[in-house]
Structures are given as structure tokens and as C-alpha cells.
Design a protein around this nucleic acid. Structure first.
Length: 417
RNA sequence: CGGGGCGUAGCGCAGCCUGGUAGCGCACCUGCUUCGGGAGCAGGGGGUCGCAGGUUCAAAUCCUGUCGCCCCGACCA
């Protein structure tokens, strides 16, 4: 599908199978709304097909992520989903990783796995191609489907087995350089989640199987989050409960408050765990071999979509933050005979030209949650006006069609492209 | 893997306890009317009741096994 900005799409030609009733399979609101809004359908436990609307939102998150990764100096690559066992045996994770790592053999009886993460592959790439400290620092990233055979997938794309992830890996000559790279990614993550319109909190976390010196998780605050976090009531300190079992802030001794969070990002200072195991080294200015100091940085792209819905919805449906919205403007044409010539507004527009009753169109529009709606029809149309409605708070303005662009720019907080 | 629940039309469900030729709402198709917040009337199509065995004259219903899905727990970059 065309994802170029500024297009006009006819609702009648899009596959948007909205559901009036709540699907029995969904427990939490983001999962329910993704199904009801026709974004998502299940193929098997934890494995989903994204429909046009769902894909458009995913693409919007990807766009924000790419822009900020590129701005931070990271370079995009694309690594294979299928990985040979040998690499994982080098780091010992072939044995360490449990059943979450889906393994299989090819026709020649060689062992492979579906990549749940890409430290081994990227380290293999860099050790082959980078020889000198002059080539550092380098940060590589990709946006790719991951597969983790979760014990218990749940809540739709919140905890799927197959999911879209942005993973980045930094390589530096020394610890100081690695800290700079880590900080750049930290800054980029703040910008990404802010741009996505999310209320989030960076927390200190355990680095788990990935390993490394220290790590931070980016938690979207939501009641339905699977993680519990402790945040200081006075300073900015916050930690995952796995990491912080105490009741008082270790920095300022103030009491800690408990919140629920959805982990949408996780950044790790890896150190030389992988570069040493895999002999990924460069020559320093003195001509000595040094293992590269690494960091790795993940964002659950599909999970971010669900997290955004958890924070932005009401009883009628989704209320997309403008940067993530599948469309910026939803044109509700009450009488298909009044279908306007779709003016090039410079925004993504969906035009509901279906031959259906007004109630169906209003309800679908609210469900899908495009941030602005134009209602064309009735008395207003006879006056030569249209109604512009803001989804977030229901504010309605009657204006001349020529004024739509201006109000949109104001409401969306973003200029036309 | 332990505990709980559910598999009946595309979706949501009833029927199962107490066995006797499978039903409701929505959706879908046709016609007429209607048309600013999920229309009305009339007609119509759609089902191996998850699957496999067993009991029985007869199984959606009872028994056994099995598969799938959901929730809680353990686990989780």
C-alpha cells in the first residue's frame, strides 16, 4: 500500500473489517481495539497478521524510529531472520538460551534458529569488516521481525511470539566511547517515545540473558502493563521491581511509589561480553588488538502500537496521537453523492465513501480513532460549510472547506507535508 | 509445565445437567421503504457441533483420548 504522506484513500476500497462486538479472545483494551478497529487478526497463539490500518500505524512508528536513529548517527541494515547455530555456540548462548529460542535443522541436517535478537550476527559482521579504531564508533540498526517462542504469549501484540523490533548495536574502541554511544541512544529513545505521544519512564533494569554492565528500560505507564516499577516520589530515580526490591529511594531515601509499565524499549551497556567471546577486535593507535566495547538497544515496535492505544482511548475507540495515526483526517461523507473532489491537503486522508448509514460511519470513525474528522452533509453542507471534529475531546468547528488545512495544522501540531 | 476456563454459521452466544433430525442476535444475499450516531418489513443462503475412539436403537449432549485457544502462576531482550 502507498505509504507516501499526503495521499487520499477511499474507505470503500480498504480492508477495514471493524467489529461491533467485543471479540472473546481479547482481555485488554489495546488488544480489543486493535481487533475491533480491523487492524489485526490472529493466525496462531502470539502470531498475527496486520491489516492495512494496523500496518499503517506500524509504519508510522517505524518512521519516527528511523528518523531518530538516523539523526543519532546510526546506520540501517537488515540481518537474516534465520541464524546458524555455530554463532550461538561461540557465545555459549546455544546452551544458555532456553526453549524461547526456536531451533530447527535445514535439509542438510545443520542446526539453525529463528533470531530472537542479533548480537551474534552483528558481531560476526563487524569483526569481519572493521579492523581499525579509525572505523569506530559505528552503530548499526535494523527494523525486523523477531521470533521468540514465549512460554505464554498474551494480550495480542503486547507479548507476541513474532513481533517487529528495532534493534541497534554500537561498537566503540573503549569504555568512554561506548558510554557516549549509549548516551546518544538514550537521548534518541527519549525523543522517539515523546514523538509517539507516550507518557513513559526510564527505569534501571536487570540485563537478563543479554548480559552486560547496566541497562535501562523505557516503560510506558499503563495499568495493564506486565511490569511493576518503583519510582521515587522526590527525585527521578525509578527501577524495575526485579532490580529494586527496597521501599526507599537509594539516591535520596524518599519513599518509592509503585506503577505498572509496558516495556517498549531496553538499552544495554554490553561491554566486551560478545566481542571477547567472538574475537571481535580492532587495532588501537598503538597497534594493539582491543576487543570492541558494545552496546545494544531494542524497541518493541509492534508493542509500542499497543502501548499507545493503552494510553490513548475512550469508550468509543482509539484516539491516536497524530504522529502514529493511520490517517490524519477522516472524511465522513454522509451522502455518497456529495463525495468531494479529494483536495490535496498534504495530510493522510481517508474518505468514507461507503453507502452506509450515518451512524455506522460515525461509530467506525470514532473506533478507528483518526485524530480529526470532517463531516460532510445535511444542513451544514447547504450553508457551504463542513464540520471539523477533533477526536481527542469531541470539539467541533463549522468552517468553510478551504479552512480545513489551517485548523488541521493547529490541531495535529504538525504541518502538512 | 501446574491451576482454571472455552471450542456449536464470518462474529457474539444459547442448547449439554436430564441423549431423540441444531437455534438466537449481528453480519451476508434479494426486494421495498428509510437515511446526522450501528434502520424497518418481507424473503433467502450458510453448520463434518475442534478431532478421534467408545457407550447407546439414537450423541452437540454421556465416557476416554487428543488438538487448539484464553486467563492465572512459574518464565521473559
Amino acid at each position: 500500500m502507498n505509504t507516501q504522506p499526503g495521499g487520499v484513500w477511499r474507505y470503500s476500497s480498504l480492508l477495514i473489517p471493524t467489529l461491533r462486538e467485543e471479540p472473546g479472545e481479547a482481555e485488554i483494551v489495546s488488544h480489543q481495539l486493535m481487533l475491533r478497529a480491523g487492524m489485526l487478526r490472529k493466525l496462531a497463539a502470539g502470531i498475527y497478521t496486520l491489516l492495512p490500518l494496523g500496518l499503517r500505524v506500524l509504519n508510522k512508528v517505524e518512521r519516527v524510529v528511523r528518523e531518530e536513529m538516523n539523526r543519532a548517527g546510526a546506520q540501517e541494515i537488515l540481518m537474516p531472520m534465520v541464524q546458524p547455530a555455530e554463532l550461538w555456540q561461540e557465545t555459549g548462548r546455544w546452551q544458555q538460551y532456553g526453549k524461547e529460542l526456536l531451533r530447527f535443522k535445514d535439509r542438510h541436517d545443520r542446526d539453525f534458529c529463528l533470531g530472537p535478537t542479533h548480537e551474534e550476527v552483528v558481531t560476526d559482521l563487524v569483526r569481519r569488516e572493521v579492523r581499525s579504531y579509525r572505523q569506530l564508533p559505528v552503530t548499526l540498526y535494523q527494523i525486523q521481525m523477531k521470533f521468540r517462542d514465549e512460554i505464554r504469549p498474551r494480550f495480542g501484540v503486547m507479548r507476541g511470539r513474532e513481533f517487529l523490533m528495532k534493534d541497534a548495536y554500537s561498537f566503540d574502541l573503549d569504555e568512554a566511547g561506548a558510554r557516549v554511544s549509549y548516551q546518544k541512544m538514550n537521548d534518541a529513545y527519549h525523543r522517539i517515545f515523546e514523538r509517539c505521544g507516550l507518557k513513559f519512564k526510564p527505569v534501571e533494569a536487570d540485563s537478563g540473558v543479554i548480559g552486560g554492565a547496566y541497562s535501562q528500560e523505557f516503560m510506558v505507564l499503563a495499568e495493564t502493563g506486565e511490569d511493576s516499577i518503583k519510582a521515587c516520589s522526590q527525585c527521578s530515580y525509578a527501577a524495575n521491581v526485579e532490580k529494586q526490591p527496597g521501599a526507599a529511594c537509594p539516591r535520596c531515601q524518599a519513599p518509592l511509589e509503585t506503577h505498572r509499565g509496558i516495556e517498549v524499549g531496553h538499552i544495554f551497556m554490553l561491554g566486551t561480553k560478545y566481542s571477547e567471546a567472538m574475537k571481535a577486535a580492532v587495532l588501537d593507535p598503538q597497534g594493539h588488538e582491543q576487543p570492541m566495547v558494545m552496546g545494544c538497544y531494542g524497541i518493541g515496535v509492534s508493542r509500542t502500537v499497543a502501548a499507545a492505544i493503552e494510553q490513548h482511548h475512550d469508550d468509543k475507540g482509539i484516539r491516536w496521537p497524530a504522529p502514529l495515526a493511520p490517517f490524519h483526517l477522516h472524511v465522513v461523507v454522509l451522502n455518497p453523492k456529495d463525495t468531494p473532489r479529494a483536495a490535496a491537503l498534504g495530510y493522510d486522508v481517508v474518505l468514507d465513501d461507503r453507502d452506509d448509514r450515518a451512524g455506522i460511519k460515525f461509530n467506525d470513525a470514532d473506533l478507528i480513532g483518526v485524530p480529526a474528522q470532517v463531516i460532510i452533509g445535511g444542513r451544514t453542507l447547504k450553508e457551504g460549510l463542513v464540520e471539523l471534529k477533533r477526536r481527542s475531546d469531541g470539539v467541533v468547528r463549522k468552517i468553510e472547506p478551504g479552512g480545513i488545512g489551517g485548523v488541521l495544522a493547529e490541531w495535529l501540531g504538525m504541518p502538512a507535508v
